[in-house]
Deep mutational scan, measured.
Amino acid sequence: KKVLATKVLGTVKWFNVRNGYGFINRNDTKEDVFVHQTAIKKNNPRKYLRSVGDGETVEFDVVEGEKGAEAANVTGPDGVPVEGSR
């Protein structure tokens, strides 16, 4: 997949743990970017399912997906594990 941007910060708009996807709002362009649970690189080690929490700040790369921009290599800021869904 073509990389459109790297090390982008954003805020998780919503994430559905059961369906394994959601959207992140980019801090720079204010665009919403699709995020799938497989894109989460560093999950909260205390959680079994990969997820990001609503309102959580995350860092990610933006790649060209089949339906437009999507997140890849999702971590917390500066590469720490994500907090995950509460």
Rank of each mutant, 00 (worst) to 15 (best):
R50I: 10
K42G: 15
S51V: 13
A5M: 06
Q37A: 15
A39D: 05
V82E: 11
V58R: 01
D54M: 15
L4Q: 06
F15V: 01
V80I: 11
P45E: 11
H36M: 03
V52K: 05
V3C: 05
V58A: 02
P81W: 12
T6M: 07
T75I: 09
V17R: 13
V80P: 11
V58F: 02
G84M: 11
A39R: 03
F60V: 01
H36K: 07
E59P: 00
G22Q: 02
D32A: 02
T38D: 08
N27P: 02
E59Q: 13
F15R: 00
G55L: 05
N25S: 11
E64F: 08
D32W: 00
A69W: 09
N27A: 09
G84R: 11
G53T: 14
V17G: 08
G65T: 09
G22R: 02
A39Q: 09
H36R: 08
S85D: 12
S85A: 14
K42C: 15
E83Y: 09
D61K: 01
E83F: 09
R50T: 12
R26D: 02
D28R: 01
E66F: 08
K67F: 08
R18G: 07
E70T: 07
T29W: 00
T75E: 06
N43G: 14
E64K: 09
E70K: 08
F60L: 05
L4T: 08
T38P: 03
G53A: 14
F15Y: 11
A72M: 11
E66Y: 07
V82T: 11
G84V: 11
V33E: 04
V82R: 10
E31Q: 09
T38Y: 05
F34A: 05
T57E: 09
E31R: 03
V35M: 10
A72I: 14
R18H: 09
W14Q: 07
V52G: 06
V8I: 10
V80G: 14
S51D: 10
D54G: 15
K30M: 08
V74H: 03
V12I: 09
V35K: 01
V58K: 03
G68Y: 07
T57G: 03
V12G: 01
R26F: 00
G65S: 08
V17S: 12
S51R: 11
V52A: 06
G68T: 07
A39Y: 05
K42I: 15
Y21G: 04
D61E: 05
K30W: 03
V33T: 03
F15T: 04
D78N: 15
R18Y: 08
K67E: 07
R26E: 03
A5K: 09
D28H: 01
K67P: 03
K7P: 03
G76T: 14
V8L: 05
G79A: 11
F15S: 05
I40E: 04
V35E: 03
V3S: 06
H36C: 06
T29N: 08
P81M: 12
D32S: 03
P45D: 12
K13L: 06
Y48C: 14
G68D: 02
F15D: 04
S85M: 12
G68Q: 03
T29D: 04
E59C: 12
T57C: 10
G84Y: 08
V63T: 04
I24M: 03
A69S: 09
G10K: 04
V63D: 02
K42V: 15
N19M: 15
D78M: 12
T6F: 08
P77C: 13
R26G: 00
A69T: 13
Q37S: 14
T38R: 10
I40C: 05
G53C: 14
H36N: 06
Y48F: 11
K1N: 08
L9K: 14
E83C: 13
V58Y: 01
R86A: 13
Y21R: 04
L9C: 08
P77D: 06
G20K: 09
I40V: 07
I40L: 10
E64G: 05
K2H: 03
Q37W: 15
V80E: 12
T11P: 00
G65P: 03
G79R: 11
G10S: 03
G22S: 02
P81L: 11
R26T: 02
G76D: 09
A71P: 02
G76K: 15
R46V: 10
K1Y: 06
D61W: 00
K67S: 08
V82H: 10
T38G: 08
E70C: 10
L49T: 12
A5L: 03
V33A: 02
K41G: 09
N27R: 06
T38N: 10
R50Q: 12
N25P: 00
S85P: 13
L4R: 01
N25D: 01
A72W: 12
G20N: 07
